Simulated scan of single mutants.
Amino acid sequence: MYRNILVPTDGSDITAKAVQTALTLAKTLGAKLTVMSVKEPFPYSAISEMQPVPPQEFYDAQERIAAARVKTVAEAAAAAGVACDAATVEAVHPWEAIVDHAKAQSCDLIVMASHGRRGVSALLLGSETQKVLTHCQVPVLVIK
């Protein structure tokens, strides 16, 4: 049924539930797991003479954080006997990176978390999951 399942992770507790679901599903189906974490680009508009963090230090920190997130999932996949590819991707909009990565890696299912925001909060903050659902041709399993 599904052969390559993408699970994006931001390291949150709700994402951990999506990761566990994706791992269980991949193991049950004999599918490969593809895990990704999105890094924030350097906020160039904030560049001034008094930068709180130099750009390279910012990039290095973002990579360390994202790499630790995907490493945790890759280790859990290895322990479960599930093949896993891991990547970190820099993007302004995480939903775009998720849609693009799913296509580039030929994923046939995306398992992702939803924080379940409603009303004005959802409208103002937006929903990466909602945007993936809207713009992606790949089926999406949403975990709450």
Rank of each mutant, 00 (worst) to 15 (best):
I5C: 05
L6F: 05
L6I: 07
P8C: 06
P8A: 01
P8T: 06
T9K: 01
G11I: 03
D13M: 12
D13E: 15
K17N: 15
V19A: 04
Q20W: 10
T21L: 11
A22G: 11
L23M: 11
L23E: 03
T24I: 06
A31I: 10
T34W: 00
M36I: 15
M36W: 04
V38M: 00
V38Y: 01
V38P: 02
V38F: 00
K39C: 15
P41D: 02
Y44K: 15
Y44I: 15
S45Y: 08
A46Y: 11
E49Q: 09
E49L: 11
M50G: 14
V53P: 06
P54T: 13
Y59C: 07
A61S: 14
A61P: 03
E63Y: 09
I65M: 14
V70D: 06
V70M: 03
A74I: 06
E75F: 08
A76Q: 15
A76R: 13
A79R: 14
A80P: 08
G81S: 05
C84Q: 05
D85I: 02
A87L: 13
A87R: 12
A87K: 10
A91C: 05
V92E: 14
H93S: 13
H93C: 12
P94K: 00
W95H: 11
A97V: 00
I98T: 07
V99Y: 04
V99G: 12
H101C: 09
A104H: 10
Q105R: 13
S106H: 15
C107F: 02
H115C: 04
G116L: 00
R118I: 09
R118F: 04
V120M: 12
A122D: 04
S127K: 00
E128A: 11
Q130D: 14
Q130G: 15
K131S: 01
K131R: 09
C136T: 13
P139L: 04
L141F: 01
